[in-house]
Design a protein around this nucleic acid. Sequence first.
DNA 1: CTGTTAGCGCGTTCAC
DNA 2: GTGAACGCGCTAACAG
Lengths: 344, 344
Amino acid sequence: MHKKISAGDAAGASRAVTKEDVARAAGVSHITVSRVINSPDKVAPATREKVQEYIARMGYIPNLLAGGLASRRTRIIAAVVPTIGHSIFAETVRGMSDYLMAHDYQLLLGQSDYSEQIETELVEAFIGRRVDGVVLTGVQHTAATRQRLKAAGIPVVETWDLTPDPIDMLAGFSNVDAGAAMGEYLYEQGYRRIAFVGGEDPRGVARMAGLSAALRRHRLRAPVRITVAPGSFLQGGREAMVQLATQHADVDAAFFSNDVIAAGAVLECNRRQIRIPEDIAIAGFANLDIASEINPPLTTVHVSSHRIGETAAQMMLARLGGDAAAPAPTVSDLGFSIVRRQSA
Amino acid sequence: MHKKISAGDAAGASRAVTKEDVARAAGVSHITVSRVINSPDKVAPATREKVQEYIARMGYIPNLLAGGLASRRTRIIAAVVPTIGHSIFAETVRGMSDYLMAHDYQLLLGQSDYSEQIETELVEAFIGRRVDGVVLTGVQHTAATRQRLKAAGIPVVETWDLTPDPIDMLAGFSNVDAGAAMGEYLYEQGYRRIAFVGGEDPRGVARMAGLSAALRRHRLRAPVRITVAPGSFLQGGREAMVQLATQHADVDAAFFSNDVIAAGAVLECNRRQIRIPEDIAIAGFANLDIASEINPPLTTVHVSSHRIGETAAQMMLARLGGDAAAPAPTVSDLGFSIVRRQSA
DNA sequence: CTGTTAGCGCGTTCAC
DNA sequence: GTGAACGCGCTAACAG
């Protein structure tokens, strides 16, 4: 078999340097080069150093496409989040990314914009790229998503919620319980007419459901429900506060499904001279920076966005590295806690 | 050549469905399946529909690794941002992502944490994956980054700044000019002792340089420089404000390199009953949501974070789709503008 | 409009 | 410790 070997690379778009090139230059076979890269200790120190020098000098960068095709492992984990524009998910992504990079994996990120349909398309694209695993936000997905993922037979971690029926692994906390816990807290503080302000994503809905259940247990009326349009949370919170002030004067406490929305409401209260918590108590969710910085500081539900991502990544790699003998845990309930500050 | 054909997939981890499988089932050759996917109009409608049905029924997902290896195009664009935890970059990423997804490309994201060294490693990994193009934040990179990128011969877009010496393409605005413009504005408003508060990344430094130059033109003293540690911007802003109030009482205006930091300062002022702009004027940067929502609303420099991302993606795909005859523009100066509100 | 023939660059057996 | 064959699944030319 004759290979066309161009003498030098003087002309045209020079083809990328390949393992073969390095091998030839170093006077070894390409498999030796491969070993120097993937398992250096299986190569005699002398050859290793020589090869390493050629690699550096020639600027050789292994083609991971070819490697992935041959080895059926890509060292890529894919993740779908609703959007990185919301700090909670941005934090989760950072948590994953940091852990993965530290272990020589890379993160392929997709944003679903809260659409299950887009999520399905993303998952399909990810499987096409033969990612080693997929991390999803939430536990509600299309049938197609579940089916594709199961057919692909790759590890999956769902995050930010719990369910008795996960696709595979799970790293989150119970949004229903968190909503209920805040309901109990507000009840204990003496509030009796409570509103819920938030979007309509499944996790917001779950928090609302928990809140409702808690109120029901104490024979209070169902919460006033105010929906915030996607887009600017600060503005959404302000508008929600306007609604509460003008149309629901009896409400004495509001639980916001997100600290940023709550912060918007606080800003509006300050503007209108509405006293917090005397005139209305305000509770947030997520314990973001802004919760402790705003005035008055927000009572909120602490959940560790960053740790969710980190844990998801960790479970993923544990499975991939897996010891079938000592199987990694398959569910992590990361819990939550009420952080009491001055707003409620 | 005999291929081992497993009868059904009853046993074991069933190998993923391949083009070959679909072709056999549909009674065509694998290349026809390929065409149905990549250029459907080059296939007779009857065969096309038949093949499409088999594709759907068998749940076939093309292996993009193999495709990329063979075609030398991956339809992946990689991007490096300092962090997606800051909304300006999150917005830029969204702008890119939206544009790319709409054109059937995917985004591979890396976070450099403001480290040029990490950026270099990321770029190397990206090239290893044979991405079709790379988008970078800023115009300052290691020699290795520049060299790798040029050797790879792939399109590059640098963003968020301008330079006379780009690696390839450029989509940003002049941070120096923006800093200078704010300096002029503050001078016109009558402020004479001005501080600059921000981080130490190259773009912050550029804004500071522009500000300094403007002040120098008016024979004012060089700005007081307060550095904000990375981490919580709100808290950083508050701490900076404390420093200003306690150690630099003569300062009558402060230019913050970021609206979030400025917002932290505003919160601290409100807490301390420092009047804005009477006691101290506050100017931000980026024109984020929070700038218009906080009280008082912030005078700031508007730059379109989202549009930077979108434009970068657009330039990238224009180049890749490229008509060598009508070469796409290689530099986009997206400009900036001063948004005047009540804080300065 | 459809099929055939060659690789893309690498990792994985196995041998030596 | 090192090397040779083979194939991963696909696309690019060219034929027919």
